[in-house]
Nucleic acid binder design. Structure first.
Lengths: 282, 282
DNA sequence: TATTTTAGTTTCAAATATTGGAACCATGTT
DNA sequence: AACATGGTTCCAATATTTGAAACTAAAATA
């Protein structure tokens, strides 16, 4: 455990540096298959995985077998296909509760939700991608997991750019390398150079815009959540309904930044939690 | 892939039969460590894990290393402790969306929530435990992940007993073996014998009661979600506020059963989903 | 400050699990 | 009936895992 990186309250969240190249033996190779299955977003058949996995038939077969035995995958008999298993849901509960900003930020998001009535997102950086860890909807009660856990591109979302803007140079380089720079709309930044210029603007302004760069008609403002030492912990955003103007969104900027700072402060104070919830049920 | 078991639309969700005894080699042993860390519910230090893991020092050390490299765990520098990593949240998103009943049941839960105004739970069976996959709160907007992904005992919860009651004998035996039968309250069933009698009653009645068996003051009624072939897919429950009487809850029974049947029907029809969501963001 | 303990990390040869080409089986197709 | 295609099993070669023990770092004690 040499070098460090991102995450909640100065946490060493993995070393993405070595994730390229290093396979971590059998375990790493098996988990890569798990990712592969998850990426499909639907049950996948053996034959579909085989070319993408880059593994010999017998090896892929054994890995899928193992993962299924372990409940990390589930096998759908009817479709004869593999899909991510429920064990992951159980494990993720613990991850979300302990390694994400969501539990800390929840109260502040509620507050901001009431104040603005707009759609809110809380995100963190994971492997150069934006990982949404919580959300408040404009209208009705929150859709759950369907949002939390979702990933998106960093280079063309408000929260993504807000976080990239405050990354130290080495981490930024690593993150930039992982961006696909696919052109979603005609305002999308499509190369590292122009994105870097944008990041300068973001730092100057203290918050980021998403100017329909990912989806037409979708704009938002986003602010980074920074630790006392300036480390990037995450970001929050306010997304406009179709009708809200750019100017309208801009009026939220102070409130947004203020909320981000409150969350940052709360995250820093989150020392020695001690509390151990009982298994409440029904 | 010989024998089959539980889950959504006749899915083979893992083979718990062999999970005892079988280790699935390095991968299985490593994932066991992941579970161990997750179970703690807080960041854990190496030394705390060592006795519980039952592995040689060097081996445990390497496993933790690998898991951290892989983002399945995160290492907290300050506390010098391991906790579940964000990669799990990403993976679980896929699992929840594809392998749980939640997306299918969501609409029906919303409806039931409106009709009753009560707290609702949607659960599935995983490794003999109750895994909550969705929830509707009585009052305010849903707390997210904090509920979904949570696990609880099967033998003393409404949803748990509702599911156990409809398990085929072999699966039931396996599940019973996994119950701790800890006495939470004085109505808790504390052995397999009396629980089996209770399960008979549940089958006769078509739904289950939780009569403060897990937590004092908490009662609920629960109905199983059964496939056309009678396989247990999951269960839903309505939990009473403190003030609601037993009789009051009972009036919901028909509605509850009806909803469970609707969900079952929807789950069975859920063939060839095709739909592939874009990476909506903000 | 010196000494001991505890906690965590690295080494290395032996033991073992992993590997993957190839054979095989089952199902569906022409 | 012959032939694909998709999936499963075998097995010897080999790379990986294994864990006792040595080691280092940091903390507790003297």
């Amino acid at each position: 455990m040499t070098d460090a990186s991102r995450s909640l309250g100065e946490t060493t969240e993995q070393t993405p540096a070595r994730s390229a190249g290093k396979t971590d033996g059998t375990v790493g190779r098996t988990l890569a298959v798990l990712d592969l299955v998850a990426e499909f977003g639907r049950p996948v058949r053996f034959a579909e995985l085989l070319p993408k996995a880059g593994l010999p038939k017998a090896t892929l077969y054994r890995f899928l077998q193992t993962l299924t035995n372990q409940g990390m995958l589930a096998y759908d008999d009817e479709r004869q296909a593999y899909k991510p298993g429920l064990r992951l849901v159980r494990l993720a509960h613990a991850a979300w509760a302990q390694s994400s900003l969501a539990p800390i930020a929840a109260g502040y998001l509620d507050q901001l939700s009431q104040q603005t009535g707009q759609t809110l997102h809380l995100a963190q950086l994971d492997q150069g991608m934006v990982l949404y860890v919580d959300k408040r909807n404009a209208a009705r009660p929150v859709e759950m997991f369907s949002q939390s856990g979702k990933v998106g591109p960093a280079y063309c979302t408000g929260v993504g750019k807000a976080m990239l803007a405050y990354l130290p140079e080495d981490a930024l380089q690593d993150a930039l390398k992982r961006q696909s720079f696919h052109r979603f709309t005609d305002t999308t930044f499509t190369d590292a150079e122009s994105l870097r210029a944008e990041l300068d603007n973001i730092r100057a302004r203290g918050f980021a815009w998403d100017n329909e760069e990912h989806e037409p008609g979708i704009r938002c403002i986003a602010a980074p959540i920074l630790s006392a030492q300036g480390r990037v912990l995450g970001a929050i955003s306010i997304t406009s309904g179709q009708n809200d103007s750019h100017a309208q969104l801009e009026t939220y900027a102070p409130l947004l930044k203020e909320t981000a700072e409150k969350i940052a402060k709360a995250a820093m104070e989150w020392r020695f939690p001690e509390q151990q919830r009982a298994t409440e049920t029904a």
